[in-house]
Amino acid sequence: MTADPPLVLDVDGTLTRLEGWGIDPRVFDPLREWEAPVVIATGKAFPYPVALCHFAGIPELVVAENGGVVYTGEDVFYRADREAAEAVVEAYRAAGYDLGWGREETVNRWRETEVAVNLEQPLEPLREIAAEHGLEVVDTGYAYHVKDPEPNKGDGLETVAAHVGFDPADCVAVGDSINDVSTFERTGRSFAVANADDHAKRAADEVLEDAHADGTLAVLERVRAGE
């Protein structure tokens, strides 16, 4: 048995049920019992990972919006602003397209630094308009994220680590998407769940046999056992 290392965990596709939506409740107890810091690093809007930490009963260490917002438990750091992304949305709508979330658009209501577009919407015109505004579009498998090209999850992890007092190289990371590559590059061990995209699988130290939360739970058991 060895001491628990810090964790860096994605949410969608990583802590979710096998069908892909909704947090698998089996993750709550292992996370609450973990003795080292647990960083939730996600593309979701800032309030969602904070709420997840509340429900799991763990300290609020959060990298949200693909690195656009970082919360160390004491301080919030904004790595981008939403103004440019809003300009992209305005032009996208003027071209006859829609974000695809319905009237209330709760996916973006509390988003601080980027805008998410439903995967059912046309991608190429979105990319073209984003590029005209100096932004990029990241396909996480759950949404198209219109964002500043500079912030990423790995940089956010560095910020949390510096404030909390641990070395990213000591961390174990689990993820499923291109937006997890930057955390994989900074952590000592990285795992891509079986449902991960090709970018994450190439960047990870190991591709797991199990998908979604099944894969993540298997990693936690192995790491805690000293494997």
Rank of each mutant, 00 (worst) to 15 (best):
I40G: 00
V207L: 13
Y144I: 04
E150I: 06
V69G: 03
L18S: 15
E112Y: 01
G57Y: 13
I40H: 00
A162F: 04
G226V: 11
Y71K: 10
D176K: 03
R222Q: 13
E132L: 10
H54L: 05
V160P: 13
Y144H: 14
V63E: 07
R17N: 12
I178N: 01
G73Q: 10
V207C: 12
A36D: 04
R93T: 15
D24A: 13
R26I: 09
S177Y: 01
K153A: 00
R111Y: 07
G156E: 00
S177C: 05
G57T: 14
N66M: 00
P37E: 04
A116T: 14
E86R: 07
H133N: 06
A143N: 09
E35W: 01
D4Q: 08
V8W: 04
A36P: 03
L217H: 12
D148Y: 02
G22I: 05
S190P: 01
P122D: 11
L119D: 08
G102R: 11
E209D: 15
W34E: 09
E136Q: 05
A203K: 00
V70T: 15
G43L: 09
E86C: 02
A169V: 07
N179P: 02
V8L: 07
D210W: 11
A213M: 09
E112M: 13
P30R: 07
G20D: 08
R186Q: 04
P151C: 03
N195E: 12
G73E: 10
D197P: 03
L18T: 13
D210R: 15
L31T: 11
A169E: 15
E227H: 11
V27K: 10
D180T: 01
M1W: 06
D167C: 05
D197E: 03
D12C: 11
Y48R: 02
A95E: 14
N108P: 04
E124P: 05
E65Q: 09
P25F: 11
I40L: 15
E132A: 15
G20H: 08
R111C: 04
E209Q: 15
E185I: 06
D75Y: 12
L217A: 10
D210M: 11
R79L: 15
K44Y: 00
M1D: 07
V219F: 10
R202N: 04
E65W: 11
I129R: 05
R111W: 11
T216A: 08
E128F: 01
V89E: 13
A41E: 03
E206V: 13
V115R: 15
Y78Q: 11
L217K: 12
L123Q: 13
G134M: 02
G67R: 01
V11S: 09
P6I: 04
R111E: 06
H199Y: 12
L119G: 12
V174E: 06
F28S: 07
P59G: 09
V69K: 08
G154R: 00
E120P: 00
V146T: 07
V172K: 04
E209C: 06
P168E: 07
D176A: 02
L220W: 05
D167S: 07
E114L: 09
G215F: 14
N152K: 00
G165A: 11
A225E: 14
D4F: 10
Y71N: 07
V137D: 06
G43Q: 06
V38E: 05
D10H: 08
E83H: 11
E206N: 13
R111I: 08
Y97A: 12
N195A: 10
R109W: 07
A200D: 00
G67E: 02
H199C: 03
E136V: 15
D139C: 04
E65R: 12
